[in-house]
Design a protein around this nucleic acid. Structure first.
Lengths: 118, 118
DNA sequence: CTAATTATTCCATAAATCTGGAAATATGGA
DNA sequence: TCCATATTTCCAGATTTATGGAATAATTAG
């Protein structure tokens, strides 16, 4: 994963509407959500939302697929994880003390080996 | 940690010079680095660099402290980790499958207090 | 084909960001 | 004091981003 892609992803999420969209789509995995419904849910005009969706898609954070008249958007969780991993490893590389508490913090929610619960 | 702060942090890192600065400062922990040396190292004019440092500082990702004529900048690793945690938990909350592979990926580099499989 | 639905592209405006020259501020030394 | 160093602030121009009205495209129903 290139630095350029990371910047694209960070920029895509660094905007309130788009961050909300991404959150919304993560919550709707794996079914996804049509563009119009996303716009309605967040009370944003359809064309404005279309521009935001395009930014998120160009950053690789969401994917679209036409289904009949609707275009269904889905969060790309693998990509999101890749971005987070890059960002953390980039700093964690020489600095385990950065990630150690983060792992500790995240582990109760979802540990690697076992299917997690709350 | 508020959404607003997250957006500020993401926007701060979503720019190539600033991402480089942050990387550089993480590598220079805990001594830090004077503003002028950062500018020289990345071949950016002092006033331009000052603007970028200001953005990173406003986002809470770096801190400054005057030492004689120099102003020493340091990465705020706790803050960085807080941003990463918020971002991950925000999505991980209902979706352990996002974080599980990430933890698995990060663990070899830096495990928490206890070995992960303990 | 025509109409309705869904979503995008085109276009213009407003706002924010990036950049760096010139001037200003802060510190320490002679 | 005056001077050099280190950094920031002021300012302006260039670029990018955000927003939404109007027009356009894609799909389906009748």
């Amino acid at each position: 994963m290139e630095s350029e892609e990371i910047i694209l992803a960070l920029a895509a999420l660094a905007q309130s509407t788009r961050l909300e969209v991404f959150r919304l789509l993560v919550g709707r995995e794996p079914e996804g959500m049509p563009a119009g419904e996303i716009a309605r849910e967040l009370a944003v005009p359809a064309n404005t939302m279309s521009a935001h969706l395009s930014v998120l898609a160009r950053a690789g954070l969401i994917r679209s697929e036409r289904r009949s008249r609707s275009i269904i958007y889905r969060a790309d969780l693998d990509r999101f994880r890749a971005v987070a991993t890059f960002l953390l490893k980039d700093c964690c590389g020489g600095r385990p003390e950065v990630c150690a508490p983060l792992i500790a913090d995240l582990t109760p929610c979802c540990s690697p080996k076992e299917p997690a619960r709350g």
